[in-house]
Amino acid sequence: MIYRYVLGGVSLAGVVGAAGFFGWQSLELDFLKFKSAPKPVIIQRYAQHSLWIDCEKRIAIMFAALVGADHGNAPREDEFTLDPSVDKRCQQRSTLSYGTPYDRGHLFAANHADSDPVAIHQSNYMTNIMPQHRNLNRGAMKRTEFITECLRDMGDVWIVGGIFKNETPIDSLILHGIEVPAHIWKVIHSPSLNKTWAYIFPNDSRATWGDADTYLTSLDEIDKRWGGAIQYPFYIKSRSEVMKESYPVTKSCNIS
């Protein structure tokens, strides 16, 4: 199902997670708070995640998912495809590799959908892919995916993230018809622990696995750079808190 909004208060409703939860009636983004009002945004709901796609930029500006307990180990697909249910004018022009130094990086990771072959397939739609520096994709971002897998062992996990729409891009990929975002932000929330980790990663060589903690930040800082307060669908103890370190990835975590 596709929802289309042009301007004004946008309700981020109907996020579907692995636990089958329909939520986010309370989560709203006021796009008028941007310094310049955006062009039409498509809210695209998938089996286990949702995307907010900027048709003018041909790229997702936000993703969200409620990731349930890890009960499967279905293989990831190798092929990247366009989403047949989304207007091609809102998608990247090519599914080919971006070329050095950028990987085709997932927003919603295929591993989070490992109990659902449909969700795994949808995670490889180009709507869920954006150029991520290889150090980020295989380093700091990979670490957040492993953290999510560890937290899933205790229960559901919320993940929300995206780019800063008004930020100056660092590159352009003519073949794909998109710009390369300078930063990618991500929020991980564990209801079981009642803890929230927020990150703003530079989309460059600095964002390695070992340096992920360097980019821990506050929800307030994400709001500031986003252009307005994001009302998340979970209890937040403090929007100004910055976690001192990431949740540990240990050998006991089920990351398969």
Rank of each mutant, 00 (worst) to 15 (best):
R134K: 15
G8V: 07
P181H: 04
Q92D: 02
G17K: 03
Y235K: 08
R58Q: 07
D114Q: 13
P117T: 04
G9Q: 06
D78F: 15
K165A: 09
D153H: 04
S50L: 01
S205C: 01
P169L: 14
S36A: 09
D54A: 05
H183N: 12
D87Y: 06
Y5N: 09
M62Y: 04
G161D: 05
V67H: 10
I147R: 06
G162A: 10
I163F: 08
P248F: 09
K251L: 13
D211G: 03
A69P: 12
R152A: 08
C150S: 00
I236F: 04
S123R: 09
A65G: 00
K251Y: 06
D83H: 11
F108N: 15
I43L: 15
T81Q: 03
I59A: 07
K142S: 14
D54T: 05
Y125E: 02
M130T: 13
K195C: 01
D78K: 15
S246I: 02
D30V: 07
I178C: 05
L193Y: 13
D223L: 04
I255M: 15
N111I: 14
A113M: 03
K195E: 14
G17F: 10
L96Y: 02
E77F: 09
P248G: 02
I159G: 05
P233N: 01
Y235I: 03
V118E: 01
A198G: 01
K244W: 00
S190Q: 05
Y125S: 00
C55N: 05
Y3Q: 12
D204S: 14
M130H: 13
G105T: 00
N73Y: 04
S238H: 12
S36W: 07
L216K: 06
D70I: 02
K224W: 06
R239N: 01
K251I: 14
G20K: 01
E167I: 01
D114A: 12
D171P: 10
A18W: 11
M126E: 02
A60T: 06
Q91K: 03
I163N: 05
A19C: 06
G155C: 01
S94M: 06
L151D: 00
Q91A: 00
V15T: 14
I230Q: 02
D211T: 12
W209K: 07
M154A: 13
N135F: 15
I43W: 08
E179V: 02
P38A: 12
R58K: 12
D223Q: 09
A65C: 05
K33D: 13
K33Y: 12
